[in-house]
């Protein structure tokens, strides 16, 4: 077991040199350390200007996603150990414009998330006095997997299509749309269809499948997208044989 390990950290200081570069830091190695612990050691003891996002340190806030040796991961849930002897290359997530160092700009995703209306839509709201909307365990099971998303953006970073076609609505936003489409209490599938059925909705996806592989919460956005394609296609061909139905 080595005493130290080297980290090659992506630095981008727009007010400084203006072009990004890799800076190498040597940090003490501990078996139980995650990549995030090493970054914190750098920030606390070597270079306080290093910028990155993190919060919960336990894989639920979804803010510490970065590219480590080419793979998008949550740095709080990724040990240093498998990367020994190093050096370990830490970069911001692919697919997002970099604001500074390891911090990406996620505005684009936030806008797309709003477009798919990730909330329960009712044609007529029931008043609280009429009681809650009941749901059976089977009905919950239909969407529960998609509700585990923590918006960590690893799926976007893993998706070459998002990087190639920035207009693509993307894996997490579609999985979250399906989270509500498949909810028995929701009546908003038609409204979401407006966005999902665009070419830049589900149809940009070519099923690379990496989004589901990197997802730390096993949400399976690739599955959500393919299911939506199948349903939309069946609806379309049914509408051809059944006049009066619109796709």
């Amino acid at each position: 077991m080595p005493d130290t390990v080297k980290l090659e950290v992506f630095r981008y200081r727009p007010e400084g040199e203006g072009e990004p570069l890799y800076e190498t830091f040597e940090v003490p190695y501990r078996d139980e350390w995650m990549v995030l612990d090493a970054l914190n050691q750098i920030k606390d003891h070597q270079d306080g200007t290093l910028s990155y996002r993190w919060a919960c340190r336990m894989g639920v806030c979804g803010s510490c996603g970065m590219t480590v040796n080419g793979e998008p991961v949550l740095t709080c849930a990724t040990y240093l150990e498998p990367f020994l002897p190093g050096p370990i290359r830490v970069e911001p997530l692919h697919g997002f414009p970099v604001i500074r160092d390891l911090v990406g700009d996620l505005e684009d995703f936030v806008g797309k998330l709003q477009r798919v209306k990730p909330w329960i839509i009712r044609e007529e709201e029931r008043s609280p006095s009429e009681g809650e909307y009941l749901q059976t365990p089977e009905e919950m099971d239909a969407y529960k997997r998609y509700s585990m998303c923590i918006n960590c953006m690893l799926c976007y970073a893993a998706c070459p299509i998002y990087e190639l076609e920035p207009g693509f609505i993307g894996p997490a936003a579609i999985a979250l749309a399906q989270r509500y489409n498949l909810d028995s209490r929701d009546e908003g599938a038609r409204e979401r269809h407006e966005v999902l059925a665009e070419h830049e909705g589900v149809w940009s996806c070519t099923f690379v499948g990496e989004c589901s592989i990197v997802c730390p919460k096993d949400v399976d956005p690739a599955g959500a997208i393919q299911r939506y394609k199948v349903d939309a296609t069946l609806d379309f061909f049914r509408s051809l044989v059944t006049p009066g139905r619109s796709p």
Partner: peptide, 14 residues
């Protein structure tokens, strides 16, 4: 325009 994608995707997957 909306019909194009599901139509060709249907043929593709079949």
């Amino acid at each position: 325009r909306r019909a194009r994608d599901p139509f060709f995707w249907g043929l593709f997957s079949a």
